[in-house]
Design a protein around this nucleic acid. Sequence first.
DNA 1: GTTTATTAGGATAAATTTGTCTTATTTAAA
DNA 2: TTTAAATAAGACAAATTTATCCTAATAAAC
Lengths: 144, 144
Amino acid sequence: MFSKACEYGIRATIYIAMQSLQGNRVNLKEISKEIDSPVAFTAKILQQLAKNDIINSVKGPTGGFEINKKDIDSIKLIHIVSAIDSDKIFNGCGLGLKECNEDFPCPVHFQFKEIRDNLKKMSSETSIYELATGLEVGLTFLKR
Amino acid sequence: MFSKACEYGIRATIYIAMQSLQGNRVNLKEISKEIDSPVAFTAKILQQLAKNDIINSVKGPTGGFEINKKDIDSIKLIHIVSAIDSDKIFNGCGLGLKECNEDFPCPVHFQFKEIRDNLKKMSSETSIYELATGLEVGLTFLKR
DNA sequence: GTTTATTAGGATAAATTTGTCTTATTTAAA
DNA sequence: TTTAAATAAGACAAATTTATCCTAATAAAC
Ligand code: SF4
Ligand code: SF4
């Protein structure tokens, strides 16, 4: 469904958010250990997330990544997916047709539109806050 | 959502089905022209579909691809997707965790499960027959 | 039987995604 | 002010996906 980069990006953001809720800034090494992802590749993804103002990066000793507590609830899944994978999955065609036009629909249009719209709705409504708190209370997990 | 190979595979199968409903066997060149796909790559995908008994291939002059009329309604979208992309999208994790266990869910589990199950249900219920007839009556299109 | 039109299969190539490595930059701490 | 710990950036490498090309196999038509 999502690219590897996007999966790592979502997992990383959730972990950073959970730590930020507890007042902790976390560094690359810790993040990739906790989300079980390749270190250097994760660095690239975190850079992308920082450029898209989804997370903050701080250089130097004691540096790392964090999210302002007040922003955590306004970051939605769709922001991360759009930043890393583009919004193709939310707006593109199920059969990959280039020019998408509902007046000249592809054969799967009527079936796919519903799935795609639900995915978009879910991604727009699901906040990193709710995903991070599930992790914080031990209801959900980022590894295995 | 699906790989390019899978998109071409679905489009090709729908086209072959539509022609088969009209009693026509179609060859590679015509298929890739009508679904606007790379010829040689499409050949590989058709091979895969034939091996998975989704379409029939016939060699030699007047050869080509076809589907038995009586089978067209029993071929569902999920058969094509599973044959080409595997069933990962229907059963795998939204965050790419390897060992999937609902008792130790990933943070997006509760949100994703619904989307994923709907996609699976839709793909299991949507037959190539219904997609092919939409194309046949000019309601839907395979190019653009 | 020969030719010709078709699919099958294998080798190769190009493009993209995934991942690594090295160096530069920043900045807190010593 | 120097050192050390962290991210940023760019070059590179590996793996996968997408795509092409060439030859073999098949079988209808001549
Ligand atoms: S017809 Fe529907 S599924 Fe196809 S391209 Fe347009 S919006 Fe997308
Ligand atoms: S927890 Fe849910 S979404 Fe995550 S791997 Fe298991 S089934 Fe998939």
